[in-house]
Design a protein around this nucleic acid. Structure first.
Lengths: 256, 256
DNA sequence: CGTAGCTTTGAAGATTTTCAACCTTAGTGG
DNA sequence: CCACTAAGGTTGAAAATCTTCAAAGCTACG
């Protein structure tokens, strides 16, 4: 099993090109900003030291200062009920943003934990807010970003409210596939950074159900799955299982 | 059965007072805006003719121009999967906002339909955006609004992902109660504007399950329910059933 | 006053969870 | 380098929850 299954298939330049105006390392920048604006935005970005697996980016109740963009690795955001078990709110892959739900109350309403070695950019929100006053296109971009996150969660409501266990897992895998593809990774072969338990906590299913579904998908020739490593064999059928519904094709808020 | 169970218990003035800077009829205005700003905001608000039961405010796919605030009545927003059955995304009561999910793609990603005679204010988003460039506190308010909607939906994810049918209905009723209370209506007695089917489509349950739960709640002395009319008898126990989880206490984005 | 549309109720069925046990793998320390 | 261990993953059987199907009751409205 190769260790770098998730390595880019296309080179960074072509991603940048596809994104329009990208810089700031892995951070995708809003389109519609000129070079000077991008510079200004670049100046407020903080680069933090990398997080290790299990490190918290923030915890529920922490005061809100910044939103974060995943540069590499992956982050899980989750809220936990009194009884201890967690509802995973989202898995954040490189290029995706988190912390947007904290703007309202000025504190984080869910926790975020690194699922592997992860690098993030930190965007202090007060600076971003101030900058967006002067840059209309940035303001618009942030409105869109927030709206995008609302959309993603509305799709998730549809999945949790209407879909069977099978459809949920299919939608989840298809969504992951799409998100990797968009970033130039393989859409057919990747390593999950989350456990079966965490997938269950995301999809509202018991671990055992998730495990059984992986087994069934395997038996049906839909995919090969050895623990974290997933190889999708029949993408069309997978898509068919998903697009019976409107799906889960959105990734998290991204700047482009 | 009185027709005006949902009539305000306190008078309008005291609601205004509680809201801070309220005007524009039933529309609550952002706090932190001075009178001049409020005037400016007031000038961009369009007042539409009232909607009748069954009128669409917008449909999925419609181009996005405005966000809406419910002044009186109630609106259901829903997305429908290919197979026809709908997932209710939210019920919008007076003072609550809808249409925020359309900003990202420039078109509505769900439909909104009036559940009874309803009055709404229309806020053209381009004007709002332009105005918020000049009014930092308005900009901040809109960021918060969008974030609040993300929060509400994250709570809903927790409900759909982790809660039993009983807990879901309890959370729903408790949430309604709280939202009515905040606006000066009775929190113990109100008329539902949605059918059992629509409640089911919101909570991810079959109609029959919803109906049976109402019956059970009635038998247990939790409430009296005659079709649309609900009288909560044991608020503490209801709250207990809900706060076992973190609940569904948020209403939709509101300006104050 | 009749009818259509909601609501309720019962019984059977399906899906998913729970409980319990066992298997596999990665990591640890001898 | 190997054995051990803990954590994660899988599997089976029983149980619970919820849905589906079918039918009947109620009520609002024309």
């Amino acid at each position: 099993m190769t260790a770098d299954t998730n390595a880019p298939v296309v080179n960074l330049d072509s991603i940048k090109q596809a994104c329009g105006t990208c810089s700031l390392g892995a951070l995708c920048l809003p389109m519609g900003l000129d070079e000077k604006d991008v510079d200004e935005l670049g100046r407020i970005v903080k680069r933090n030291r990398p997080l290790h697996r299990g490190d918290h980016l923030f915890r529920m109740g922490d005061p809100f200062h910044s939103i974060f963009v995943v540069k590499s690795g992956s982050v899980k955001s989750y809220s936990s009920a009194q009884d201890g078990d967690e509802q995973v709110v989202g898995f954040h892959l490189p290029g995706e943003m988190l912390g947007l739900d904290a703007i309202d109350r000025g504190m984080h309403s869910c926790s975020a934990i690194s699922m592997e070695t992860t690098a993030v950019c930190e965007l202090p929100f007060d600076r971003l807010e101030e900058l967006s006053r002067r840059l209309p296109s940035l303001q618009h971009q942030i409105f869109r970003l927030l709206s995008k996150e609302i959309n993603r969660e509305e799709e998730m409501l549809l999945v949790l409210g209407k879909k069977s266990a099978e459809e949920r897992l299919a939608a989840f895998l298809f969504s992951l596939s799409l998100r990797y593809k968009r970033r130039g990774y393989s859409d057919r072969e990747f390593n999950l950074s989350m456990s079966r338990q965490e997938i269950g906590n995301y999809l509202g299913l018991a671990v055992e159900t998730v495990s059984r579904l992986f087994t069934r998908f395997h038996e049906e020739g839909l995919l090969e799955a050895q623990r974290k490593h997933v190889h999708i064999l029949d993408m069309e059928r997978l898509e068919g299982m998903v697009s019976a519904c409107s799906s889960m094709v959105n990734d998290h808020a991204r700047m482009c």
